[in-house]
Design a protein around this nucleic acid. Structure first.
Lengths: 144, 144
DNA sequence: TATTAATCCTATCAATTTAATAGGAATTAC
DNA sequence: GTAATTCCTATTAAATTGATAGGATTAATA
C-alpha cells in the first residue's frame, strides 16, 4: 500500500506546481485545499525540504517552493524520499541493498528473480515521469 | 515492502514445484529447507489452500500439493492471495476498488494517474510470470 | 521594536498491521 | 490404536503508521 505520507506528499507537490506564482506556498493553504491534516503535512514537507526537493522560507509570507523545474524532478527521487526504496525487498534494491538472512543463494531464489522484474517495471514508470507530468490537468491532457 | 507472508509463500510454492514427486509435501519439510517458522508457514499454506491454489491431504503421509500445472498458475493470482491487491491505492484497484474519501475528482488526481501506471506495470509482470517460471533453476535458465 | 505569521523541531500517542507462537481438534496411514 | 499430519482459533509482541501537541525560531512589517 501507498502510505498516506507519500500520497499527501505527491498531492502537495502537485499543488505547489499549480500555484505557480513566485511566492512560496504556505502549508496551511495546501492542507486546506488538499484535505490534509496540517501538522502531518508540515512534517512531510520538512522531509522533502531536507531531501533537497523543496526549499523553504521562514517567517511571515514564508512557505515552500520547488528548487528545480518540475520537469526535472523525477518520480524516482520523490518516491524514494517519501516512500523509501522502490524495490519490494532489500535484496533487489539499487540504493538500499541488503542481503536476506534466510536466503542461501540469491541467484537461485525465486522471490529474488520475480522482485527484480517488479522493481524494474516500477523504475521504468518512475524514471519516465516527472513532477511536471503529474501536475498536468486533465483538460491539458486531452488537448495533447 | 513485500511481507514475509508473501515471501515465505512464494518460496514454499517453488519448493513444492521442485519436489516434483506425486506425494504431497509436508509443511515440516518446507519449513526446514526454506528456513521458515513452521507454525507461521502452516497458516500461509492454509490460506493458499483456501484460495484454491494448493490442495492438501490430512493425516499421516499428508501434506500439500498443487492443484494445477505450475505453468498455469499466474503470479497475479498468487500475489493477490498472499499480498492482497496489486494496486498501491484502492482507487486504482481492479479487484478491490474503493473511492478515496479525500479525493474530489479521480480524473484530475495526480496520485491516481501515477498509480494507474504503476499498477499496470506490475500487472504486466505478474500476468506474464507463472509459478513454473519462478521454479526454474539458474542452470536451466542459462541453458535457455 | 513589538506583533504577527510562518517554518522548524522534538516528543508522544493511538491504532493498525505484521510476524510469530501456542495448544489442541480432526483426520488418516499403518 | 498410535503416530503423524493438517486444521482451526486465539493470543501476543514488535513494528509501523498516522496523527497530535507544544513550543522554538525566524522574518516581515506596522
Amino acid at each position: 500500500m501507498l502510505s498516506k505520507k507519500t500520497k499527501y506528499g505527491l498531492k502537495a507537490l502537485t499543488f505547489i506546481v499549480n500555484s505557480a506564482g513566485d511566492n512560496p506556498v504556505q502549508v496551511s493553504a495546501i492542507a486546506k485545499n488538499e484535505q490534509i491534516p496540517q501538522k502531518f503535512l508540515e512534517s512531510i514537507l520538512l522531509t522533502l525540504r531536507k531531501a533537497g526537493v523543496l526549499g523553504s522560507k521562514k517567517g511571515k509570507h514564508g512557505g515552500y517552493y520547488l528548487r528545480q523545474d518540475p520537469a526535472d524532478i523525477l518520480m524516482t527521487e520523490v518516491m524514494r524520499v517519501l516512500e523509501g526504496p522502490i524495490a519490494m525487498v532489500p535484496c533487489v534494491s539499487l540504493n538500499y541493498y541488503e542481503k536476506c538472512d534466510d536466503c542461501v543463494d540469491e541467484d537461485t531464489c525465486s522471490v529474488h528473480k520475480l522482485m527484480i522484474q517488479v522493481r524494474d517495471s516500477a523504475l521504468n514508470v518512475f524514471r519516465n515521469t516527472t513532477l511536471a507530468d503529474l501536475a498536468v490537468k486533465k483538460t491539458e491532457n486531452i488537448v495533447k
